[in-house]
Design a protein around this nucleic acid. Structure first.
Lengths: 206, 206, 206, 206
DNA sequence: TATGAATGAGCCTTCATTCAT
DNA sequence: TATGAATGAAGGCTCATTCAT
């Protein structure tokens, strides 16, 4: 019966939402499964019907939330008026800036993702398409590369370097204003990103 | 008598070494104080004579270990034959490369430091001079800037960006060969670093 | 099904009984929760399903046990043949004597209650009706006052003075025969009580 | 050497004072020997040169402090102008009132003494003469009885009843204003005491 | 599928006491 | 006599996980 199916789906969603709420409030390691089920209004045993353990629910949350960050950014980019005039660099900076702004306004999310992120989980998040969404960032990135008049050397490494640079830098600047405020950091950061991209450019496509 | 004093020093060192051993083996959060004292061969209560709690011993370890990384790198740099011909960029790359190589050969240390590092702790580590050492990296960095014929804009931000880029990138490349091997990564990474430095250069000193 | 509910009730009762046993044997502060659960045959965690901590279980025991003392005494009083001829003083002395005798025969209970009693807890015990009992001593006391042909000044203070006098005096006499045996003390004590009541008597009701 | 002797005495006094300070501040059972020696400025081992354990120092404090209460009260009584016109009852009430007032102004002392008092310790306190004082309350009480024109039946029991009544009643009234304020309680209490004394009066001395 | 009572290993921390110095 | 580092048993308490219902 679809009703039962829907009910199951609801329980799982409820657990995910509640867990995110508490992870971002009191931190992952201080959150107990009791906390989660109690606030979600289900029984303790029920948790284990949907998730293997605390790590399982955390990883699924990271995937979901960081995927969402990218999707939102890309959607905004597409609304942009003069998109056709954007270079590859422009688009990258646009997306990054959008994500940074999202994180700046949701610092709990930033803490949660950064503290629990690894490139492995992250790559999964970028690659795994959501249930009902045709979008995943890997495809979009590939498309953006194709649209550029340039060839790029080792584009995955380039993306990797950019991601590591951005995520480390933002964490510190947004949460602690160290070594400077986000606004002060941005020009330096975006400049650095443009330089990295520049250095990965190969010859033009014919 | 200095004997007792020396004995105390030994206990503390023993605890620090043992803790490092276990932190890097089974991870910080899975390490209990029982584990530490048991392997160190002291009683549980003794731990609390030297450290406030697990976090205290961890922070002191990070300070100590990351300080050591820099000191080793700088010492190696100074032995370099043609040091006088090195530009600022050359020196930075040299130090970074040396540190990366150290971490590559001591992956447990890399895991430990990276997972527990924040810019705040790191800055402390760079600034705090060791007991018997006149060296701390902040001073050395300042000296290197002075020796350069160029002025640099916002040198602290520049260092910050480089540190974040390097630490994120190494973690993934060394431990998981993601997105590529360390050897593959290095040229890209060092190139990126040179670009970042380049973009922070201001006019020449008179 | 009521089976589970009954089982829970049993566990709680078992814990209460065991705790009482041990509190009266080795004293409250020397009793650990380990002791209790171990003798009750349940796991440590189970204790915390029923009680907040050691103080919680102690207070509930005091309430229960001292309430029981009064109920027993009152029930005995009611069985008395010539109850109708009893004055207010006679009833009070009867009840007190009955309680003292109960305590004399259960010195562990006396120790436990006295050492842990405060007027606050005691008042709670007297006021709180048990689950399945319509009796609480406050109501009975009020009834006794109403039945008397006399008005009493500050009846609560009067009761308070009597309670403090009796509990202090009994503790010492019963447990240590200090400053004299219980039998020697009783006439003096009851005399004192009658005097206290006397001095609280106001004019007769019309 | 007297100097060394004096030094020893100082250490002991310092420990006693410090212990009293902390017992009355954070409670006996929550005070550790570490607390005491730390605040007293001596080493841990030193404590055991002067006291057997925590209970030892507590008992000696109770003796000392409650003896002092009585001595102060008796000294005040002696300063009284019309002392010769005081009856036995008047003197008793005077002393009791004085002690109650002392306790009312030093509630920490009240808590400490009451929570840790037993008739046994108390009797010791009343009987044991201080080092350099000829006064102990037992002698004074005997003297007061002799000075009265009346014989008293079982004077020790009488004193006992009064002490128990007063100590229980004060504890609750002073610290918790239960069942009424100290001021409200006093007339009732003193009345009750007079009644108790009255009921112990035998015939007059010839 | 859902429950939640029960578990018990394991955590961190305290502290009275000892003993070599 | 005085020290204080070291001990290690014991304490209170948490929590992921299980399982009978």
């Amino acid at each position: 019966m679809g009703k039962l199916e829907a009910n199951k789906q609801m329980k799982e969603t409820s657990l995910l939402n509640t867990a995110f709420e508490i992870f971002t409030t009191k931190g992952f390691s201080k959150t107990s499964i009791s906390d989660i089920v109690c606030h979600a209004g289900v029984a303790k045993g029920t948790f284990y019907l949907y998730f293997k353990d605390k790590y399982d629910i955390r990883n699924r949350l990271i995937c979901h939330k960081s995927g969402q960050l990218f999707r939102t950014a890309v959607q905004e980019l597409r609304k942009e008026n003069k998109l056709s005039e954007f270079t590859f660099e422009d688009k990258m900076i646009y997306i990054i800036d959008n994500i940074i702004n999202q994180l700046n306004e949701n610092q709990a999310l930033l803490t949660f993702i950064s503290k629990n992120l690894s490139w492995g989980v992250f790559k999964t998040a970028l690659t795994t398409p959501l249930r009902d969404s045709e979008l995943n960032f890997s495809d979009i990135y590939r498309k953006m590369l194709e649209d550029s008049p340039y060839h790029f050397k080792e584009p995955e490494v380039m993306l990797f370097l950019i991601v590591e640079l951005v995520s480390g830098a933002c964490y510190s600047a947004i949460l602690y204003q160290e070594p400077c405020s986000l606004e002060q950091l941005k020009p330096n950061l975006y400049n650095a990103i443009r330089m990295i991209i520049q250095s990965h450019k190969a010859n033009m496509k014919i």
